[in-house]
Design a protein around this nucleic acid. Structure first.
Length: 352
DNA sequence: AACCCGTGGAG
DNA sequence: TCTCCAAGGGT
């Protein structure tokens, strides 16, 4: 493995300025809560997306105590649109547990917090507590696979890549600055050692890269092919009152879009719903529904969703079924608290 | 091990 | 339009 000092020297000149990073050369350890929040928010989510959302979340929930004291609807609203909502549920539950226990400062303790896996535990330990570990994320996998010219495809190659990555920590330069070394690897992977067209001529490790020497850098790391996504259909029911409010429902705590607000509708299945069949799932019986033009499309990780929308305006005073979880909410407020799939559905409605 | 779990941007 | 992918984790 090449010289860790070369990468750190490059990082000191080219590091990205990001909201969750302190000023260059800061000797003060960052707040573990902020590192935790940023790492969770960055899971499978781009830096560009996270930037403003991280700042907004932190302004609303500035520390563990504030997040622990919040109720779930407030946290869900703050996370709406970011995806992978289990992250928010775990963050919230974790804050409530940490508010009493304090923040663990090693990998094993961090790993026990829900939503913190091998990567995030290593990242927090390295960045917030100077633990001599290398967090293996997609960037580090790519960088290491190229340096060592690992031809085996992911995810099977992950263990080998992790062993190679941890090997950097035998170097005193890396051990002296574990948090900076981890973030240097992230920045290298994000700005130079990119998935396509890596900028090898600018790389501080140009001389030590086996893939570049062989001319195969752009083809690594190899990945197992992904299964194709099936299509699912649903029909939802937009009920409006005379005061600009919508009938909304909170989804079950676990599973897809768990704990988030939704427009009530049918289950999502492979076959489209004939209107007559869909109506048996309407939240209020016997209403005259009008079909809205068009279809909302939304791609999830493992299936493609196509939704139709039926519109009705219940008579004032129509009672909501007891125990249904249905509630009236102002349209703008509801939209802001909903996941993207539901926002797309609402966009079919000219009312907002 | 193989699935499940969101979203937006780049190419 | 379509594929790929991003500071992954849980089951």
């Amino acid at each position: 493995m090449p010289d860790a000092g070369l990468l750190l020297a490059w990082y000191d000149r080219h590091r990205r300025s990001l909201p969750w990073r302190g000023p260059p050369g800061a000797n003060r350890r960052p707040d573990p809560y902020r590192v935790w929040l940023s790492e969770v928010m960055l899971q499978q989510t781009t830096v560009a997306t996270v930037g403003p959302r991280y700042s907004r979340f932190l302004a609303r929930f500035p520390d563990v105590a504030a997040l622990a004291a919040a109720d779930w609807p407030a946290v869900a609203e703050e996370w709406a649109g970011l995806g992978y909502y289990a992250r928010a549920r775990n963050l919230h539950a974790g804050a409530r547990s940490l508010a009493a226990q304090g923040f663990p400062d090693d990998v094993a303790g961090l790993r026990a917090i829900p939503g913190i896996g091998a990567y995030t535990a290593a990242a927090i330990a390295a960045i917030a507590f100077d633990a001599p570990v290398v967090p293996l994320d997609g960037n580090v996998e790519r960088v290491v696979a190229r340096l060592a010219r690992v031809e085996a495809p992911l995810p099977a190659a992950r263990k080998a890549l992790d062993a190679l990555a941890q090997g950097f920590m035998v170097q005193p330069a890396a051990r002296a600055r574990p948090g900076d070394f981890a973030q240097a690897l992230f920045d290298l992977g994000a700005t130079l050692c990119t998935p396509r067209n890596p900028a090898c001529t600018l790389c501080p490790w140009l001389g030590g890269c086996a893939a570049q020497a062989a001319g195969v850098q752009a083809a690594l790391p190899r990945k197992a092919p992904k299964p194709q996504r099936p299509i699912r259909h649903g029909t939802h029911f937009l009920l409006t009152d005379g005061a600009g409010r919508l009938l909304v429902r909170r989804r079950p705590e676990t599973g897809l879009l768990g704990g988030m607000l939704e427009i009530p509708g049918t289950p999502w299945r492979a076959e489209p719903w004939p209107a007559a069949e869909a109506l048996s799932h309407a939240p209020l019986p016997g209403l005259p529904f009008q079909a809205l033009e068009g279809e909302a499309r939304h791609g999830f990780t493992h299936f493609e969703l196509r939704l139709q929308l039926l519109l009705a305006a219940p008579a004032e005073g129509d009672a909501l079924p007891a125990g249904s979880g249905l509630a009236w909410m102002a349209a703008a407020e509801a939209r802001a608290a909903m996941p993207t799939a539901m926002r797309r559905l609402l966009a079919l409605w000219p009312g907002v």
